[in-house]
């Protein structure tokens, strides 16, 4: 028996109520354990795509499958447990009184026993190295700490897939480096939306280039990013590290 892909989109189309067609037939498949980046200029539809992965937006046409199951009204609760979404602005994700309460929020909603919740939350905070902050209020954290805790809130739900929208925004070089190490240490299926192409090069062997709501390229990151003409045509540029790796790219 083959395991189904972690994420599978089939001809996904989506239009906002005001008529903006943000996605126009996107098909892709991400295997279990794979790390895939989604890149593209502003307004390409990346965030819209991400919001389909946990059923916040529902496709106007086409299908989204997570772990082989299509997302529908009945499965959406299950899908939300399986897909951990890390938002662009951690302030949106840390809404409780303390770091611990925030990390415990998800597990508590799943009806776990208090002991199990405590254990999970502690483990998740330990995993991101933020256990010492457990009683701190979220507004008293640095940007990097907020990001790490936001990731912990998602880890505490033991998701199978991690989806991140702009994980490195607002981080200083050191915080960014730490984030990269942290993300590399996870063996979840990862889908990372980012404008930080150098981070993508380090974390994701495969990238998908989105523009105007359609996929214009899907392939090995280094190959894709080295294609200067393609990158420029879609509002991106070749990241600097690749110049060192492939001077004649």
């Amino acid at each position: 028996m083959t395991t189904p892909p972690s994420i599978e989109l089939r001809d996904l189309c989506f239009a906002y109520p005001d008529g903006t067609r943000a996605l126009r037939g996107v098909s892709l498949s991400v295997a279990q354990g794979e790390s895939v980046a989604i890149v593209g200029g502003n307004g390409a539809g990346k965030s819209t795509l991400v919001q389909h992965l946990n059923g916040y937006l529902m496709a106007t046409q086409g299908e989204v499958r997570v772990g082989g199951k299509p997302i529908a009204r009945e499965t959406v609760a299950q899908v939300r447990r399986a897909v951990g979404l890390v938002f662009q602005d951690p302030d949106d994700q840390l809404f409780m009184a303390s770091v611990f309460d925030d990390v415990a929020f998800g597990p508590l909603n799943f009806g776990l026993s208090p002991e199990a919740v405590e254990k999970r939350a502690t483990a998740a905070l330990e995993r991101v190295g933020m256990l010492h902050l457990r009683e701190r209020p979220p507004h008293k954290l640095s940007a990097g700490e907020k990001r790490a805790v936001a990731i912990a809130t998602v880890l505490a739900m033991s998701p199978e897939v991690l989806v991140m929208d702009e994980p490195s925004s607002n981080l200083d070089p050191c915080g960014r480096r730490r984030l990269i190490h942290l993300l590399r240490s996870f063996d979840h299926t990862k889908l990372i939306v980012s404008h930080d192409l150098e981070l993508v090069v380090e974390l994701c062997p495969r990238s998908i280039l989105l523009d105007g709501g359609v996929i214009v390229a899907d392939g090995p990151t280094v190959e894709l990013f080295s294609n200067e003409a393609l990158m420029l045509a879609h509002g991106l540029e070749r990241p600097h590290i690749l110049r060192h790796l492939h001077p004649h790219g």
Partner: peptide, 22 residues
């Protein structure tokens, strides 16, 4: 906008109208 994003973050962690605290 922020309120809408927060709501999104809440439901993606299983929010069902009840906020629980340990």
């Amino acid at each position: 906008d922020r309120a809408q994003r927060i709501y999104r973050a809440m439901i993606s962690r299983g929010f069902d109208g009840e906020v629980r605290v340990l």
